[in-house]
């Protein structure tokens, strides 16, 4: 689960920089690889990866929350038998 958050940050921050920062600023920072449109495409793809990572995190969170009541019921049943 923690990997989803890490990937979201690792992909999301560079993605946002490549997509939304002014191209002249990117060139000044040494990030002027390729053409402007290529950088924007790379940035958008990184943003998509970040978004999907967040969705994965939420899915895993939902799954782990749904499992907890089931485990509680098993413990209650086993304590009644004694």
């Amino acid at each position: 689960m923690k990997w989803s958050i890490i990937i979201a940050f690792v992909a999301g921050i560079p993605g946002a920089i490549l997509t939304f920062v002014d191209p002249r600023t990117l060139v000044a920072w040494g990030l002027g690889f390729g053409r402007h449109n290529d950088r924007v495409l790379a940035g958008v793809l990184l943003l998509i990866i970040a978004f999907v990572s967040i969705c994965k995190f939420l899915t895993l969170l939902n799954t782990s929350t749904a499992e907890k009541p089931a485990r509680k019921n098993i413990r209650k049943k086993s304590s009644r038998k004694k």
């Binding site: 449109n37 958008v44 943003l47 999907v52 899915t59």
Partner: peptide, 30 residues
Amino acid sequence: LIGIGRTPGIVSALLGPTAFYIYYRVATPT
């Protein structure tokens, strides 16, 4: 990573076009 179904389908249908719209807005016209 998530799966194929109704909710992933809705998310896919919104994510792809929105990301493409962002590209359109920011990229240089060709």
